[in-house]
C-alpha cells in the first residue's frame, strides 16, 4: 500500500483521484503486526531445526542398518536409539524456540536467549565419543 508522508509526495493527479486530498499524515501509519520478513525468517529457522532433527533420526536408522555390530552387542542399538531420540528432542525444542521467537517478534522485543545450539552440539559430541570408543573396541578385538 502506498503511504504518503509529506504533501510533496502527492502525485500530479486530478483532485478527486488523490488519496486523502485534504488529510496528509505527518508520519507514516505503522501496521499493527510485525514485519512479515521477521515472521518468515523465524519460520525458516523452525524448519531448519526440524531438518536437523530429521538428519539425526536418519543417522540413527543408518547406524542400525549399516553398522549392526558396533563394538559390543548392544552398541549399535544404543547409538541408534540415542540418535533417534536426540532428533525427536531437537524437533520439539526447535518448535519451542519458534514459539518463544514468535512471541518476542509480536511484542517487538529482542529474541530470547537459548542454550539449544550448545545443548545439541554437546549431545552429538557425546554420541560421537561413544561411537569412537565402540569402534576402538572393535578394532582392538580384531
Amino acid at each position: 500500500m502506498h503511504r504518503l508522508t509529506v504533501r510533496g509526495d502527492l502525485p500530479d493527479l486530478p483532485f478527486r483521484a488523490r488519496p486523502y486530498p485534504d488529510r496528509v499524515p505527518v508520519s507514516p501509519e505503522l501496521p499493527d503486526h510485525p514485519d512479515y520478513r521477521f515472521t518468515l525468517a523465524n519460520e525458516r529457522t523452525l524448519l531448519a531445526w526440524l531438518r536437523t532433527g530429521l538428519a539425526l533420526v536418519a543417522g540413527g536408522v543408518a547406524v542400525a542398518t549399516y553398522a549392526p555390530d558396533l563394538g559390543v552387542r548392544w552398541g549399535s542399538a544404543a547409538v541408534s536409539l540415542a540418535l533417534v531420540l536426540l532428533g525427536l528432542l531437537t524437533a520439539l525444542a526447535g518448535y519451542g524456540r519458534w514459539r518463544a521467537n514468535e512471541a518476542a517478534i509480536e511484542a517487538g522485543r529482542a529474541l530470547p536467549s537459548s542454550l539449544l545450539v550448545p545443548a545439541v552440539v554437546a549431545a552429538v559430541t557425546a554420541v560421537v565419543v561413544v561411537v569412537a570408543v565402540l569402534v576402538g573396541v572393535e578394532v582392538l578385538r580384531g
Binding site: P34, L50, V57, V84, L88, G94, Y95, E102
Partner: peptide, 23 residues
C-alpha cells in the same frame, strides 16, 4: 500478519511421527 501456528504445528508433529517410526 503472516504468522500462523498451524503449519508449524503440523510440520513438527510430522517430524515427531517420523522419529517414532524410526524408533
Amino acid at each position: 500478519a503472516v504468522s500462523d501456528p498451524t503449519p508449524a504445528r503440523v510440520a513438527t508433529a510430522g517430524v515427531v511421527l517420523a522419529a517414532v517410526a524410526a524408533a
